[in-house]
Design a protein around this nucleic acid. Structure first.
Length: 582
RNA sequence: GCGGCGGUCGUCUAGCCUGGACUAGGACGCCGGCCCUCCAAGCCGGAGAUCCCGGGUUCAAAUCCCGGCCGCCGCACCA
């Protein structure tokens, strides 16, 4: 795989710039770490990956998934509710003599062996003082911890704006809109809400090119379901989808990690559920879908694994998390997707902060007859007891929770309102039998979340091949290739037959384009050079118009991966091309 | 953020140590022309470099010194 003694990574970075895939952003001003531009070829591949994701995670799944788009700029309250404002901040302390920077809480935990997570900066500072904690590298004095917020700050409105952040994930848009989408889905669970969009994370030190960006694209799905039904629902699907049931996933569990194991074990989807590897069956379902998605965009199965996060590694919202990792030549195993069981965390938090009703009304199969006590005050009698305080007592009574009032009276035989002791007698209490048709539940959530640029990188790395004659061929899966087909005239001279050849090639290009086939047309340089250019950006097929073409309306079609060619009639071109994109 | 190493046409690089004839050289790529039967052909011509940026030393800086930016590696960080 060596080409002039260069690594695959270096070859790819060169290629990416030369051929318009990607390059560092703001280059003419010296560049800014963590930001990349994408060229026409890169963008085309990205869009194709997005469409494959849509196919695998939205259109071809066995459940209802709806795609939405919500703003990037997010009012502070939303990320307060989601827990990001608190948890996306790390307390940082710096060594005064050597300048090394540490996570203050981690340092303290190591030094005094006590959990200090969630303590304020002041409290951490106090502990550092009391225990005389110093720089573990040079023994120098430490500075007072300060929060390093990884959210990008901004303001809404140019004058006295309200504080806002760039979203660090697209997920909150789905939680906020849960009720809207539930209505649109006509109140049916399970329900998936998907979003593909840009996010910002103000990383302390981004490196590793496309793999660690400050602004990137997330393809995310929030899947809402009733936990009591998840086993049955998933089993019904797997009954029908045998290939999905038997999809093989390479798994490294948290338990195995704690035992020091590094080798993955292979489980089928059904085994993940039956052996309780996943804490909810939907986790297994989406992991299987994600496994299949990556395989189909060109990642070999032996380079895909799922690694369960240890309790202390998990995000604040997650009950269980698996990272989906791909093996890269340069960085080893690298996370490209995460699967989190977020339970009711996010909806609960948004209910709490917004007071909105984000519940699902779960209808019983048969309405339940429930005996229900009703209570109402008798104003005349209350006036007798309360006297002057009557208006304020009545007001307080009307604002009081009726259930609470009932239980107080039942337990104590009286209730004290506005310092007035009221016995049971001034209340009308009536027992009624009512039909209850269902109850409000907060759905549980499983979230598969994919980093598009990371996926782009691993797809490119896995597609990169160097031929024995040192040429680059990007063997992209057909469906993610930047163009479906290249069209070339064999020669581009000025003789009448050359002109005919060029005109025929251009005509074929137009016919293909009008049939929605993406075409790369090129008549510059020799035919060999044009094949190389097409191979380098991974165009899987090439149509060449030659001397014979202008005699008998046949062309040659060349296959990128084998360099083989066959001759077909012009009328067969579209059918031949499309047969490879099914 | 710390330490080490590095940054020269689109790409790869020569030159830097030992400052001056460097108008910064080459290769590939790119553009124009000639030629034209299938895998980077050949010939002719051309465009293309803030020598990463800023400051300093010097008569003179791509070259030496300082600061910054960016990249790579290690440490730290990475809901």
């Amino acid at each position: 795989m060596e080409r002039n003694n260069k690594s695959k990574y270096e070859i790819l970075v060169d290629l990416a710039k030369r051929r318009g895939i990607f390059w560092p952003a703001y280059e003419i001003y010296g560049g800014v770490a963590g930001f990349y531009d994408f060229g026409p070829v890169g963008l085309s591949i990205k869009n194709n990956i997005i469409n494959e994701w849509r196919y695998h995670l939205i259109h071809s799944v066995d459940v209802n998934v709806l795609e939405i788009e919500t703003p990037i700029i997010t009012p502070r309250i939303v990320l307060k509710a989601s827990g990001h404002e608190d948890h996306f901040t790390d307390p940082i302390t710096e060594c005064k003599s050597c300048g090394r920077v540490y996570r203050a809480d981690h340092l303290i935990e190591e030094a005094i062996n006590k959990k200090v997570e969630g303590l304020s900066m002041e409290e951490l500072w106090k502990i550092i003082h009391e225990h005389n904690i110093r720089c573990p590298e040079c023994g120098g004095e430490l500075t007072k911890p300060k929060p390093a917020l990884l959210l990008f700050k901004t303001e809404i409105g140019p004058y006295k704006g309200t504080k806002a952040y760039l979203r660090p994930e697209t997920a909150q848009g789905m939680f906020i809109n849960f009720k809207n989408l539930l209505n649109i889905a006509r109140n049916k669970l399970p329900l998936g809400i998907a979003q593909i969009g840009r996010v910002g994370r103000n990383e302390i030190s981004p490196r590793q090119g496309l793999l660690r960006l400050r602004e990137f694209t997330i393809m995310e799905l929030e899947f809402f379901f009733d936990p009591e039904k998840s086993y049955e629902e998933v089993m019904n699907i797997l009954e029908k989808r045998k290939e999905l049931r038997n999809e093989r996933l390479n798994i490294l569990t948290a338990k195995d990690k704690l035992e020091g194991k590094e080798e993955t074990q292979t489980y089928t989807t059904i085994e993940l559920i039956e052996e309780n590897i996943v804490t909810n069956p939907w986790m297994a379902y989406w992991m299987a879908i994600g496994n299949k998605f990556l395989r189909e965009i060109g990642i070999p199965i032996n380079k895909i694994r799922f690694v369960e996060k240890l309790p202390e590694e998990k995000a604040h919202y997650s009950e269980q998390t698996f990272d989906q990792e791909v093996f890269t030549e340069k960085y080893g195993w690298f996370e490209v997707a995460g699967y989190s069981y977020r339970t009711t965390y996010d909806l609960r938090r948004h209910i709490e902060y917004s007071k909105a009703d984000l519940t699902f009304f779960k209808r019983y199969e048969k309405p339940k007859k429930v005996k229900k006590k009703k209570i109402a005050p008798n104003p005349a009698k209350i006036k007798e007891i309360a006297g002057e305080k009557f208006p304020s007592v009545m007001k307080a009574l009307s604002e009081m929770d009726k259930e609470h009032l009932l239980s107080e009276l039942e337990n104590n035989g009286y209730v004290i309102i506005q310092d007035v002791k009221i016995p049971e007698s001034p209340f009308y209490v009536k027992e009624e039998e009512v039909l209850v048709h269902g109850e409000k539940i907060i759905p549980h959530v499983v979230e598969p979340s994919f980093g598009l640029e990371r996926i782009l990188y691993v797809v490119l790395e896995n597609s990169l091949h160097i031929t024995s004659d040192q040429k680059i061929v990007l063997k992209l899966p057909y469906r993610v290739a930047p163009y479906m087909v290249a069209v070339f005239p064999l020669v581009t001279g000025t003789k009448p037959e050359h002109v005919k050849m060029i005109n025929l090639a251009k005509k074929i290009k137009e016919i293909l384009i009008s049939n929605r086939i993406t075409v790369y047309y090129d008549e510059e340089g020799s035919i060999g050079k044009r094949y190389v250019r097409a191979d380098e950006i991974g165009i899987p097929l090439a149509i060449t118009v030659d001397y014979q073409s202008i005699e008998d309306n046949t062309v040659t079609i060349r296959y990128r991966d084998t360099r083989e060619q066959k001759r077909i009639h012009i009328g067969e071109i579209i059918k031949e091309i499309l047969s490879h994109f099914k």
